[in-house]
């Protein structure tokens, strides 16, 4: 299988980096390297993160492209062949109603990762906008937005989500919306803090001295500077939200069968006999969730170190 390496996550990295800051040997080496290029080199030097990146790339590419090369059918019920052991025909056996587990794993991965990634994107965008507004304008705008954040923080989010899904039903869009609604707070706080500290930076003040309006400051200086942190948060949110989706689906409030997701595959495998004697029903989705979350967390840590070398 050939992997076009420049899809998925690496695309996020060549974004602007944290400040070059004033390192001790400033001005000594005059090499032409963009801040993004420097960060990318630092990232690759972190073995764990680099390996995690490869693992994630394989996982994502597999989920996207495998159905094009293999004949995978996650929906056909085969009543004569339920809970069959892994075999040449069914790589990971079949489930309670005789569907191919490997096919469901691949298609479930599309849903789980898709929900995780899009919810994370929506969460971070929402959080960044709110944080940027609060940080840039300050005053009452800041007070109102931050009190709003406190309110959302004090909600037991899983319970709230379950209630909402109970009322409106659980389609993918509602699920993404809910996950974003209850998770933007941390992003907003970080972006706000970064912007508050950047606002007093001389280069931002200089920009104001040239007559820059808030819109210019946010788009040209503040958000790009916050971007490195936002990228890190985004990555970690993907892990967290993939896990949240799995949890909700496991409880029966997330993705509804027959659509497969890693979470509802686990749910279907809850019975004691299944757990004890039919590992092909729960081990693959469980492992996929664990590997995904772990890899993304490693990537997130690697990114943080690469983008902000002063934190090490």
């Amino acid at each position: 299988m050939t992997l076009p390496v420049d899809t998925t996550l690496p695309a996020a990295e060549p974004g602007p980096t944290a400040d070059g800051g004033s390192n001790a040997l400033e001005g000594l080496s005059v090499k032409r390297r963009s801040p993004a290029g420097l960060a990318w080199r630092r990232f690759l030097r972190n073995r764990l993160a680099a390996v995690a990146l490869v693992v994630m790339a394989i996982l994502v590419l597999g989920v996207i492209f495998l159905p094009m090369f293999m004949n995978l059918d996650p929906y056909t019920v085969d009543p004569l062949n339920i809970r069959a052991k892994p075999s040449a025909e069914h790589l990971l056996g079949t489930d309670n109603v005789g569907r191919d587990v490997f096919a469901r794993l691949v298609y479930g991965g599309r849903v789980s990762l898709g929900v995780g990634i899009s919810a994370a994107v929506v969460t971070t965008v929402l959080g960044s906008i709110i944080g940027a507004l609060a940080g840039t304008f300050g005053g009452w705008v800041d007070s109102v937005l931050m009190r709003m954040a406190d309110v959302f923080m004090s909600f037991p989010s899983i319970v709230a989500m379950i209630i909402v899904i109970g009322i409106f039903g659980g389609n993918v869009i509602v699920l993404i919306g809910l996950l974003a609604l209850f998770n933007w707070i941390s992003t907003a706080r970080v972006v706000r803090a970064v912007i508050l500290s950047l606002r007093e930076r001389e280069y931002v003040q200089a920009s104001r001295a040239f007559g820059a309006k808030p819109g210019w400051l946010i788009t040209r200086h503040l958000l790009p500077a916050a971007l490195s942190q936002v990228v890190v948060i985004l990555t970690l949110e993907v892990a967290g939200l993939t896990l949240s989706e799995a949890a909700l689906s496991f409880l029966g409030f997330g993705i509804q069968p027959p659509t497969a997701s890693w979470g509802n595959m686990l749910q279907a495998a809850q019975q004691y006999t299944v757990i004890s004697s039919m590992p092909w029903l729960w081990l693959p989705p469980g492992l996929c969730i664990a590997i995904t979350v772990l890899s993304i967390n490693f990537i997130g840590d690697g990114l943080r170190d690469a983008l902000d070398p002063r934190q090490r």
């Binding site: 070059g20 801040p35 001389e202 280069y203 003040q205 200089a206 790009p224 500077a225």
Partner: peptide, 8 residues
């Protein structure tokens, strides 16, 4: 001269 120029 360090803080007054954008690093990006």
């Amino acid at each position: 001269p360090y803080a007054s120029l954008s690093p990006r």
